[in-house]
Amino acid sequence: MALFGKKKHTSVKVRKRDIPDGLWIKCPSCSEMVFKQELEAALNVCPRCEYHFPFARQARLALLSEAGSFEEWDAGLTSVDVLTFTGTATYTAKLKENQQETGCRDAITCGRARLGRHVIALGVMDFEFLGASMGAVVGEKVARLVERGTVERLPVLIACTSGGARMYEGLYSLMQMAKTSAALARHAAARLPYIPVLTHPTTAGVMASFATLGDVIIAEPGALIGFAGPRVIKETTQQELPAGFQSAEFLLKHGLLDMVVPRKELKSQLILLLDYLMPPPPAEPLPAPAAASTP
């Protein structure tokens, strides 16, 4: 009945084989054959049916920051096998395999970036790395991102995706939910905006912490978003799931999301929101005449 870390349980279909690598890619939604370069130019969105293909970490970072403005924070954090977890494979082996495949240390990249005229604290999660599960590194990096955002008075923006908590870190992984939410409480108290962007898929422990604590919550079209995975719900309740259950559109209708925004409009929509929530500081008042300033 516990609901985290069951990424392999969900019917989430983000596998490496779905990431386009041939010259032509078949759209899983409309079956159209799309030329790879055309797909990339369209931010991995099918030009015919608007299906949103998975979007790599680097591409997402590029989309959400002005060219050359991203400065990475806390790049040196690495997960450790704190429980000496004994499963079918060791956690250390899993980590190594995922690090080699992705070329990244863990499931999130954080830093400072410019977006429009705004300086933002930006986090981008990556499902390719152990299902973007949240262990101590993800939790710590999110907490530091938010804390630094609070100190530097920056809006925080996180592109979320996750299969849940990182089971290999046991209860430490669960506590990252509390840690990240605590940091956001302080950021909120400082009256700074936080906007999570929920991408396919965002579930479980990340969903039940920082993914749903936004001032404005945005999702990409078609993203699977939920607490428990569809299979777990089906098994528990023995019920057929309603059509479109746990899709971004379903959650917009049921009142969780503020908006579902296509990828190609995401950047301009975020800038517009930040323009509302982070107005420029009032212009410097004119210096008082010298005579008036003497007491």
Partner: peptide, 10 residues
């Protein structure tokens, strides 16, 4: 709660 979690840092 901020202190919960173990990781390596370089």
């Amino acid at each position: 709660f901020r202190a919960m979690g173990v990781f390596a840092e370089q």
